[in-house]
Simulated scan of single mutants.
Amino acid sequence: MKTSIGIKNENLVKVAEVLIQTLADEFVLYTKTKKAHWNVEGADFYNKHLFFEMQYEQLDQIIDQLAERIRMLGHYAPATLREYLGLTHLSEHHLESNDSLTYMKELLSDHESIIIHLRENIENFAVEFHDAGTSDYITGLLETHEKMAWMLRSHLK
């Protein structure tokens, strides 16, 4: 059944495309954060193991909400690793070290990349695509990533 929520179909398609790429970014970041949780080593292991767990749990909620937002707009959310890797603008790296600082630097970089991507699209959603709901949703998501990035950045001082 066609989605009829006061937004032109071509605008729904454009919004969904951005949200789908964002979903891929979130899933890749989730996976990288889970890797940090599983593999971190060092004197600060226990604290960082718990810290990374807190962050990947937040990302898990973000992924679910974002996929549901895509569905609310009448589109399907991708759900395969192949799709995510083809859509994301993040990259996977083989880290040389499993210490918490190495993981935190990479995860911080990814959060900042997502923040920039979200910030670039907030106005487009509201003004160009006439979707204030997604603009508002993305603003909240941006703030969540800003807080997560702040937490990572604070560990790096």
Rank of each mutant, 00 (worst) to 15 (best):
I114T: 02
H37T: 01
V18F: 02
I114F: 05
R82I: 14
H93S: 08
Y137D: 11
F27I: 10
S154D: 03
V28N: 15
H89T: 07
V13A: 06
I70E: 11
N47R: 13
A36P: 05
H89W: 04
L59N: 01
N121E: 10
K8H: 15
F125H: 09
T3A: 15
Y30W: 06
E83F: 14
H49E: 06
D25G: 06
M72S: 14
V28I: 12
D99R: 03
D99P: 02
E143F: 06
F45M: 12
G42L: 01
L23R: 00
F45K: 14
G74H: 01
V127F: 03
E143W: 05
H130C: 03
L12Y: 10
K35Q: 08
G86P: 09
E92N: 12
R69M: 03
I63N: 01
E68I: 06
T31K: 07
R82H: 15
G86M: 14
L118Q: 09
A149R: 02
I114S: 02
T102N: 12
Y46S: 08
L142Q: 09
G6D: 08
L59D: 02
I115W: 08
E57Q: 06
S100R: 12
D25T: 01
S154E: 07
R119H: 08
E57R: 11
S4M: 11
H155S: 09
M148W: 12
I63M: 05
L81A: 09
G42Q: 01
I114E: 00
V18C: 12
K35N: 13
L107H: 10
N39E: 14
V127Q: 06
S113A: 08
V40K: 00
R69G: 01
E26N: 15
A43C: 02
E143K: 13
K105N: 14
I7G: 02
E83V: 01
Q65F: 07
D99Y: 06
D25Y: 06
V15C: 15
V40R: 12
G140E: 12
E83L: 07
F125I: 04
Q65C: 09
D131W: 04
Q55H: 11
